[in-house]
Design a protein around this nucleic acid. Structure first.
Length: 865
RNA sequence: GCGGGAGUGGCGAAAUGGCAGACGCGCGAGACUUAGGAUCUCGUGGGGCAACCCGUGGGGGUUCGAGUCCCCCCUUCCGCACCA
């Protein structure tokens, strides 16, 4: 046994030992050794796409954080579920496979092996017996089974709808996967195309997805993003008759039915079905040109709010139901303009330029009437000032609702519309149904059969899984048709019920499908009869702490909540929400260097000159900036390299010591030696390196413990403070302060090591164990402590030692610190004031003390004139 | 434009309204060494180099006391963005 700290020897040894002891195995109810008295704790990482480039230190940040929490919870006596798996289906895996020319099955296996190797290197305490791979038939069998439940409930339907198509990726994409008209993955341009696709009726859950956000402990920013994405608006639907078209009506949605009396024109989206019907012959060529131009514009151009408004008059007029048909105000022109979205509301609006910015801008440009119908409260900018007023006020020029405040005016207007049968109250959501099919190879096949009679039925549960057919050429077809359609022997099958010929559905599910329920599979991962047992779900659900990046705010986290609610309705799970607490880890950024012209220089070309940076060779001065890690900047850091040099414990400590888990912060390899030195100091605190002995004699098994007095008492207090700080740090997950506390303790203990008792030493190791488990385990073993430290209990802080009997009393004069005096902790106000007065006597001389503030146990402040 | 987060030493960062800069990096000086890129000790916000003054993006305010609470502004990161 070497008495020099050698992580490369220590770490693999303990990792093997933990594995052979099955130290991180979580037991389900009913299993031998299951203890019903233990509380359960489910701490989950967002499982990764096993990409070809492996883990970098940013992924590891979250994994180290949850690992420390999991280890702490085990020490607290909880039955901890802390699993890991692979989100292996989907576009990235398939693209990587295409790039390398290998089958995705093969690359996925290689990549998951590499990820697992990296995670094991870090020493994370996953229960690997629960590992899942979403692309494994034993897993996707149940994804298909759960999809069937959605299908049975009418939540999956096939529809010809305008969907996003990405030519570069040769696939359709969900709304959530398209940002400003470009693909979320790869940033390729996308266009809308009407295609027949599988849709999931997430809109049926819009209200519950919104309302249930209130009951979960999630970051407010994520809740806001989900609320905005769901986009609930309350208002009214109003039907306008069209002059000269007795059988057509123009229906609009508005959140301000109270402004109906101010609607001076109508606007329909270029895609609106009525455009062709109502356009007059005089306007036809202009309208057709406008519609054609709108269709050819990119989504980005269409939706750019900063551009000036465009539009064309259709020649048609609508009749505002607020007015009698004979009233000259009733007849309003109908325009086509692309600032109205075809996909929201009814694709048409009533324009109230007096009280809507966009309508106001449009009316100004085309010289349309602006009528005031809401009087602004005095003091705010109103129509009279040449501005449009969008706030709440009092209705004017509005006949029956005149004089009513906006809230009442809305209600009254809706009531009038309903009485007259021309409108009703209406709630609209921005949320669209979820485009759920892809014409790609690497995904779950839909467990559906198309029968001869044109109907579609689910494959019976006992015929699942529907296996992906093995294909050598899995590339997407250039025309967008499904690759699975080329597997003709696979497509042609027989309906098990009728024994009649049937054709398999050739679409696959999107990458999100597997992640819509994986936290449930982890509860009971090898169940061959069900996706998971009721007992397992009842016990483990819901996830107590879910940690991952904020990037999934409206995709995975919304989809997962949706599926979970469907399961809840189907009686498959017992909670309506899957993740009780969500925590977003911050991004690990990296330094990058730029020249005076702003050009970035790859990090291997940079040299340090004291506090300054320069380009190697040329000596050009560079400035340090903070960016995302990027291959092109060569500033991506791989944990493997750090661990090879310093070991996993140092790596883990540095990841956490950088700052609070939630914060974004730059990786700085230069800072790592600080954590390495701490690890070495701990080592030397325990190991008798001077005499080349494995442990200091007074820490060895059987050594007599020391009485808690003198220096040992001082160390007891220091240890209590470190314990308290560590415990506090688990609340906000600012584990950096826990490590700082440990460093302080080691700094205190090092010069007094002969006074450090065996009990104090072993308790410190237990504090350290969640953070640096290998080091703690090695020293624990050298002390002759029984069992594994990773299965030991957390030592609580003894509050008696947190109380100081003597404090440093800050004494202020006019709020400024003038002296620090020693005072008994128990001293009363009068005694403190006396001590304080003496300490700052020179500052009080010749001054009048107007007021004295004494905060017992804290400070004294004299206010003088 | 709207919403959210964040601005504290040369750097990462601490701080229930109560001693700003804990802990660490870097840097400086010294000790021990054949040697030091090991280890240890001391120092390290700025200015005077003392007993003092100034300091948490800027400006106001509340308070005996503000990095922390309130108002206005600036910078920056993230999200959304013509949603009627």
């Amino acid at each position: 046994m070497s008495n020099v700290y050698e992580p490369r020897e220590i770490e693999p040894r303990w990792q093997a030992r933990w594995k052979s002891a099955d130290a991180y195995r979580a037991k389900n109810p009913g299993e031998p050794g299951f203890d019903p008295a233990q509380k359960k704790y489910y701490v989950l990482d967002m499982f990764p796409y096993p990409s070809g480039s492996g883990l970098h230190v940013g992924h590891a940040l979250g994994y180290v954080g949850t690992d420390i929490v999991a280890r702490k919870k085990r020490m607290d006596g909880c039955n901890v579920l802390h699993p890991m798996g692979w989100d292996a289906f989907g576009l990235p895996a398939e693209q990587y496979a295409i790039q390398t020319g290998k089958h995705p099955r093969e690359t996925t296996n290689e990549n998951t092996q590499n990820f697992k190797r990296q995670l094991e290197l870090i020493g994370v305490s996953y229960d690997w017996s629960r590992e899942v791979d979403t692309s494994d038939p034993t897993y996707y069998r149940w994804t298909q089974w759960l999809f069937t439940r959605l299908f049975e409930r009418g939540l999956a339907y096939r529809a010809q709808v305008p969907v996003w198509w990405c030519e570069e990726l040769k696939t359709v994409l969900a709304n959530e996967e398209v940002i400003n008209g470009r693909s979320e993955r790869g940033n390729h341009p996308c266009v809308r195309r009407p295609l027949s696709q599988w849709m999931l009726k997430i809109t049926a859950y819009a209200e519950r997805l919104l309302a249930d956000l209130d009951g979960i402990d999630w970051p407010e920013s994520i809740k806001i993003q989900q609320r905005e994405w769901i986009g609930k608006s309350e208002g009214a639907e109003i039907r306008f008759a069209l002059a000269g078209h007795a059988h057509e009506t123009l229906t609009v949605f508005t959140t301000r039915p109270d402004t109906l009396w101010g609607a001076t024109f109508m606007v329909v989206a270029p895609e609106h079905a009525l455009v062709a019907k109502i356009t007059t012959s005089a306007q036809r060529s202009a309208v057709e040109a406008y519609v054609a131009a709108a269709a050819s514009k990119s989504e980005l151009d269409r939706t750019d709010a900063s551009k000036t408004k465009t539009g064309v008059f259709t020649g048609a007029f609508a009749l505002n139901p607020a007015f009698d048909a004979a009233d000259p105000r009733a007849k309003v022109p109908v325009w086509v303009a692309d600032y109205v979205m075809a996909t929201y509301g009814t694709g048409a609006i009533m324009s109230v330029p007096g009280h809507d910015e966009r309508d106001f801008e449009f009316a100004r440009k085309f010289d349309l009437e602006v009528r005031e119908v809401v009087r602004a409260p005095s003091g705010s900018k109103a129509l009279a000032d040449g501005a449009c007023f969008t706030g709440e006020g009092v209705a004017v020029n509005s006949g029956p609702i005149d004089g009513l405040a906006t809230k009442l005016a809305k209600a009254k207007a809706i009531q009038l519309l309903e009485q007259r049968g021309v409108g009703k109250s209406k709630i609209t959501y921005k949320l669209r149904d979820w485009l759920f099919s892809r014409q790609r190879y690497w995904g779950e096949p839909f467990p559906l059969l198309h029968l001869e009679d044109g109907t579609t039925v689910a494959v019976p549960d006992d015929e699942l899984p529907v296996l992906l057919p093995p294909m050598d050429d899995f590339k997407p077809a250039s025309d967008g048709s499904a690759p699975l359609a080329r597997a003709q022997d696979w497509v042609a099958t027989v309906d098990p019920k009728t024994k009649r010929p049937a054709r398999r559905d050739t679409d696959t599910m999107p990458g999100w499908a597997g992640s819509c329920w994986y936290w449930l599979r982890f509860m009971d991962p090898s169940n061959a009869k069900q996706p998971f047992s009721k007992e397992a779900e009842n016990y483990w659900g819901p996830v107590d702490l879910y940690v991952g990046g904020a990037a999934h705010a409206v995709m995975h986290l919304l989809y997962a909540r949706f599926w979970h609610k469907v399961f809840f309705d189907a009686g498959i799970v017992h909670t309506s929400e899957p993740f009780q607490r969500l925590f977003n880890q911050g991004m690990v950024t990296a330094f990058a260097y730029q020249g005076a012209d702003g050009r970035l220089v790859t990090s291997d070309e940079v040299e340090t000159k004291g506090d300054a940076y320069a380009k190697r060779g040329s000596g050009e001065p560079l400035t340090q900036i903070v960016t995302k890690m990027a291959k092109s900047l060569k500033n991506v850091v791989n944990p493997d390299d750090i661990i090879a040099e310093h070991g996993a414990d140092t790596f883990r400590l540095y990841e956490m010591f950088m700052g609070p888990l939630a914060d974004s912060k730059p990786w700085n390899t230069r800072d790592i030696p600080g954590c390495r030195r701490f690890v070495e100091r701990v080592w030397r605190l325990f190991v008798d390196t001077e005499n080349d002995k494995p442990i200091r004699a007074h820490f060895a098994a059987g050594a007599a413990d020391k009485a808690i007095e003198g220096d040992t008492l001082a160390l007891e207090k220091s240890l209590a403070r470190a314990t308290k700080r560590a415990e506090d740090s688990f609340q906000a997950l600012n584990l950096n302060t826990a490590i700082a506390g440990y460093m302080t303790f080691v700094n205190d203990a090092t010069p007094l090591v002969s006074s450090l008792s065996r009990s104090q030493a072993e308790r410190f190791l237990r504090l350290l164990a969640p953070f640096a488990p290998h080091l703690a385990e090695e020293l624990w073993s050298r002390m002759g402590m029984p069992g594994l430290i990773v299965q030991a209990s957390w030592p609580g802080a003894d509050v008696r030692y947190l109380i100081e009997d003597e404090i440093d009393l800050p004494v202020q004069v006019n709020g400024k610190l003038r002296a620090t005096a020693k005072a008994k902790k128990t001293a009363n106000s009068a005694e403190l004031e006396g001590i304080a007065r003496e300490a700052v006597a020179s500052h009080l001389a010749g001054k009048e003390v107007v007021k004295t503030v004494v905060v017992p146990g804290r400070l004294v402040n004299f206010v003088v004139k």
